[in-house]
Amino acid sequence: MTENASAQSGAALAGDPSREPMVRVENLHHSYGTGTGAVAVHALRGASFDIRRGELVALKGRSGSGKTTLLHLIGGLDSPDRGRIVLDGTDLSELGENQLLELRRDRIGFIFQSFGLIPILTAAENVGVPLRLRRADPHERDERVALLLALVGLADQAPQRPAELSGGQQQRVAIARALANRPALLLADEPTGQLDAQTGLAVMELLRAVVRSEGVTALVATHDPQLLGLADRVLELSDGEVIER
C-alpha cells in the first residue's frame, strides 16, 4: 500500500473508531549500522500498510529482508528512525518506556520461532506466566490456563515440562501463553520455522482458528508458501517497502 493510499484509507475511516484498523504503519524507515565507521543497512524504506481488526495477515520476504525488524517495531520493542505506528488507536511514538511495557504486556502477544518456554515450568505454568505478572486472581488464572490449553489441544499435557513435549506441542503451548492476557494483536515471527512441514501446517491452522475464536488480529512472518494460503491477506516486504499480494 502506498503512503497516499494509506492516507486516503485513514480519511475514510476518520470519526468511526470501530472501523479504524488495528495496525496502521505510515512511511516507516529503519536503518542499522549508522554509527561512526559503520555502513548503514536500510531495513525499511517508507513502509506503509494497514491491518484490519480480526485479520490474519502473513508477512513474506526473503531472509534478512526486515520481517523481524518490522515485527519488533510494531510490537514496541524498537523505535523507527522515521514514520508512525498506530496500534489500536494508540500512536506508539507518544508512549514512554513504562507505557510501552504495559502495552506489550496487556495488548500484544508474541510468538517466536524458538518457542521461548521456561524449561523448569510445566505447560500450564508456562501459559500462566503472563497472568502471574499481572497478578491475576489465582482462580481466574487457573480457569484461563485450562481453557487455553484445551483450545490448543493440550489439556492432557498440562503437567508436562517442555522437554517432555514435541516441537509442535511446545509451539502450541507458546501460542496459548501468547493469548493468556487476551491481547488485541498477535505477532508471530516464523512460528513454524523449527517444525516439519506437516506439523507447521497444523500450527498455522491452529493460529487461524484461535484468531477467529479469540477475536484477535494476527501478523505472522513466514517464508513458507504452504502457509501463505491460510492467511486472509499476504504482505511482501521487498527492498524495505511493503507490497500487498
Rank of each mutant, 00 (worst) to 15 (best):
A5I: 08
S6M: 14
A11V: 11
A14K: 13
G15A: 11
D16Y: 09
S18K: 12
S18H: 12
R19G: 12
R19T: 13
R19M: 12
P21S: 06
P21G: 03
P21K: 01
V23W: 00
L28T: 02
H29N: 12
H29F: 14
S31A: 15
G33E: 13
T34L: 08
V39G: 12
A40V: 11
V41N: 10
H42F: 03
A43V: 03
L44A: 06
L44Y: 06
G46H: 03
F49W: 02
F49C: 00
D50E: 14
A58V: 05
S65E: 09
G66A: 10
T69C: 05
T69D: 07
L70V: 03
L70I: 04
H72I: 00
I74P: 00
D78S: 10
P80I: 00
P80T: 00
G83F: 01
I85E: 00
V86K: 00
D88P: 01
G89P: 07
T90I: 15
S93T: 12
S93Y: 05
E94C: 11
N98T: 14
Q99K: 09
Q99W: 03
L100E: 05
L100H: 01
L100D: 03
L100T: 05
L103R: 08
R105S: 12
R107V: 04
R107S: 10
F112L: 07
F115A: 04
F115H: 05
G116A: 14
G116S: 13
L117T: 08
I118L: 15
I118F: 12
P119V: 10
I120S: 15
L121H: 12
L121V: 10
A123H: 08
A123K: 07
A124V: 08
E125Q: 15
N126S: 06
N126L: 02
R132N: 13
L133I: 15
L133S: 07
A136L: 14
A136M: 14
H139L: 12
R141C: 10
D142R: 14
E143N: 15
L148K: 13
L151V: 11
G153T: 11
A155T: 11
A155N: 08
D156R: 14
Q157F: 09
A158L: 09
P159L: 04
Q160R: 15
A163R: 14
E164C: 02
S166W: 07
G168A: 08
G168H: 09
Q169S: 12
Q171F: 06
Q171Y: 07
Q171E: 10
V173N: 06
I175F: 05
R177P: 07
R177G: 06
A178W: 04
L179A: 11
P183T: 04
P183S: 07
A184G: 15
A184L: 15
L187K: 01
L187S: 01
L187E: 00
L187H: 01
D189Q: 08
T192L: 02
A197V: 14
L201K: 13
E205I: 02
R208Y: 11
G215Q: 10
L219N: 03
V220G: 01
V220F: 02
D224C: 04
P225I: 10
Q226Y: 09
L230V: 10
D232F: 01
R233T: 05
R233I: 06
V234I: 11
L235Q: 01
S238E: 15
S238P: 03
D239K: 01
G240F: 03
G240S: 11
V242F: 00
